[in-house]
Design a protein around this nucleic acid. Sequence first.
DNA 1: TGGTTTGCGACCGTAGCTGT
DNA 2: ACAGCTACGGTCGCAAACCA
Length: 323
Amino acid sequence: MAIKTSDLNARLFGKTNKRRATTPQEAQQAAKEQAQVIELAVAGEEMVAFELMRIEADQVETDTVVFAENAREQSFLNEHALSDVLVTLRERGQQYPAVGRMREDGKIDVLDGSRRRMSCILAGKPFLIYVAQNINTEHAKFLSDVANAHKPLSLYEKGKEMQAKLESGEAEDQKALAKMFQCSEALVSGALKAADLPLELLQAYPNVADLGRPTIVKLHKQFSQLSHADKGMLLKNCRDDDGFAWQRSAAQGVARITKDVSEMIEAWVEELSPSKRPASNKVDLIKGRVSYSRKGANLALNLKKVDDDVMQEILSFIEAKLN
DNA sequence: TGGTTTGCGACCGTAGCTGT
DNA sequence: ACAGCTACGGTCGCAAACCA
């Protein structure tokens, strides 16, 4: 039996009236009135008491840490990756408290809510969390895994988990992984490639969770063709004094920034290791309007801003020429 | 100006192919 | 023969374009 944040809230605020508090102040008030400490069975075993705590914004980073075995890669959590949480957090405060355990050194291990934790740090908002005193590491891992079901992990994070299953022998091969993770073999292939890429490269993107298999496969191909030294150069480009590559993009929207970053990386790779025979030997005939590419005996034409009359003339010419 | 439509790009799974 | 990869087709979401 899993324990979820939503269950905790149901206990705290009453199942019929979901939740009425709209600000952290209200939430705390409600907590004081109804239950500052609640007891729940963790993983269907012993009852554990959880105390609702409020961590002030400037202390979140120092007083709490993310559970070490959490599969979520913390360095990917930036304003883009957290945009879904940040919008409501800024407007109305934290809607659902996180769940954690007290460590021996007095810090709080965040088990469920690492995205909310980072959002509070970024937005400068107080962090609400239910804290228990005695949760062993096994139960902590259980809570952490259940929590990660809320927001799917990125391909990189899935790939890291898959790698671990392969190394431990829990999974024999990629087929077994596909069964275990309930996904296609193609996705397993992509996830493992993602996990094979260095963190610094992926951090060039605004939101790693947005990177799908095709993007990862392409990136992996580009990266793996580089020599060791060139890989280092590329990673240097991904993060300079100004920050990550995505921070240098002027594009609007995560999708566009992502595309921008892909193009930046592609250009860097090309610069470092020019392909012997250009992948696409595209030639600009009239800049911005007409280009063509030649591959073997094939010719591909690309025309822009062509009206119907001109199109008809061109097609007729081709027809007459090649018939 | 705000709501709706359209078009593009990126995703995923399936099926078939390739290399060991 | 089999594990893993790639190409293809259908689907979805986002942003630009359009219209009232």
